[in-house]
Simulated scan of single mutants.
Amino acid sequence: MISPAGAPPPLVAVVGPTATGKSGLGVALASLLGGEVVNADAMALYRGMDVGTAKLAPGERGDVAHHLLDVLDVTETASVAAYQRAARAVIEDLRAAGRTPVLVGGSGLYVQAVVDELEFPGTDATLRAELEAELAAVGPGVLHTRLATVDPAAAAVVLPSNGRRIVRALEVVALTGRPFPARLETGGPPRYDAVLLGVDRPTGELDERLARRVARMFAAGLVAETRTLLDHGLREGRTASRALGYQQVVAALDGHGDLGTAAADTVRATRRFVRRQRSWFRRDRRIVWLGPGPDLLERALRTLKA
């Protein structure tokens, strides 16, 4: 894609479900466009979570710089608001330097927070702690009933089993006196002159790829990696402990099934996650979807030039 003379390069985003080939395409595009990759996978923010997130090894990144990988300890909570600030700072520095930022990842809200003007309400540590203690004591159902009373629209969107999101919704309502923006994906005008490329594969093919990927992860040392992360506080990490693969291995290490069960559970959970990713990204009509094929890179370049 050619920018007008003197204009900074546009933002290119490569998005879509897990295991579709986004990372490889992102590196190839960044290399050809004179750009750098900005990670938009929430779990790839964590140091030490390499095998289970299918993070590209340094040798697979070629000469392309990558940003926002390995920036959090597993005990830290990932925040989309903090990510938004960090990603935008990187993108704006790259564009000012004439480098093309290539945003790559499948975390829908993280992508949306960068490419569109979204605002995230603040937080209050004391209130959050009180709500989380109540969640632990009475369970998400009771809190969801309260949410339905104070913010019926949010309760209609937030699952009754999603305790973390219920707590956040109640916190926002209490702090702002306004409804919780549960449908963040619908709000905010575009921030950048962004081109969004979506990468997907037929469901049957992707299911097979997911099963093979999980098998490779277990063969490549996911269990050993999880043990190491447990020594570094994985259980205490509110975000990292929920990462697919790791939570299933932890359950097996705790005696809830064996590692074979953990692998099968990881495949099933990842397939469910893919359905949620598709649902999120398919709402965005700006995304140009690219199917698999040996000419994927060429088709992506043609789209950028169009």
Rank of each mutant, 00 (worst) to 15 (best):
N162P: 00
S161F: 14
V27L: 15
T126Q: 07
V249Q: 05
T145G: 12
A300Q: 08
P17L: 11
G141R: 13
W289C: 13
E92V: 04
G163E: 08
V104K: 06
L45E: 12
D254H: 05
A215Y: 02
A5D: 13
V115S: 03
V74K: 12
T149Q: 15
V71R: 14
V288A: 15
G141I: 08
A215F: 04
P190Q: 07
R285A: 15
T100P: 02
G188W: 08
P181N: 05
R183N: 04
D284G: 03
G291H: 00
H144A: 08
R61V: 01
H67Y: 09
L56A: 09
A78T: 06
P101C: 02
A182N: 03
R168Y: 00
R285E: 15
V199Y: 00
A194V: 05
T266S: 03
Q247M: 08
L234H: 04
V104C: 11
G105V: 00
P10K: 11
L175T: 03
L296F: 00
L259W: 03
D41Y: 01
A252F: 02
G59N: 06
E76T: 03
A215C: 02
T226L: 08
G139L: 09
A220T: 01
D193S: 07
D116K: 13
G98D: 05
T228D: 14
L210P: 00
L68I: 07
G139E: 10
L290H: 14
R183V: 02
V214S: 02
D265R: 10
V80L: 07
L143M: 10
L147A: 11
A65D: 13
L184T: 01
R213L: 11
S79A: 11
M49S: 04
V102L: 06
G122P: 14
L304E: 07
A153Y: 04
G6F: 01
V158D: 03
A133Y: 01
S31H: 14
Y192T: 00
V15Y: 12
E60A: 13
A194E: 09
H256A: 13
A81H: 07
D207G: 02
V80W: 04
A148T: 12
F180K: 02
D193E: 12
I91S: 01
R201I: 09
D93V: 01
Q248Y: 06
L234F: 05
R61E: 05
G106T: 01
L68M: 10
L222T: 00
G141N: 05
G293V: 06
F273T: 09
V142G: 02
A251H: 09
V27R: 15
W280V: 06
A42Y: 00
G188H: 07
G257M: 05
R272K: 09
M217V: 03
A240E: 10
G21I: 14
F120D: 03
G108F: 02
A86K: 07
L296N: 07
L304D: 08
D231Q: 13
R302V: 06
L69G: 08
A129F: 01
T145R: 13
L25Q: 15
E76K: 03
R299A: 08
L69Y: 07
A148K: 12
V288S: 12
V71W: 01
R183D: 10
R227L: 13
A156C: 06
Y246D: 05
I166T: 02
L69E: 14
G291A: 11
A19C: 15
T53I: 01
T20K: 10
E36K: 09
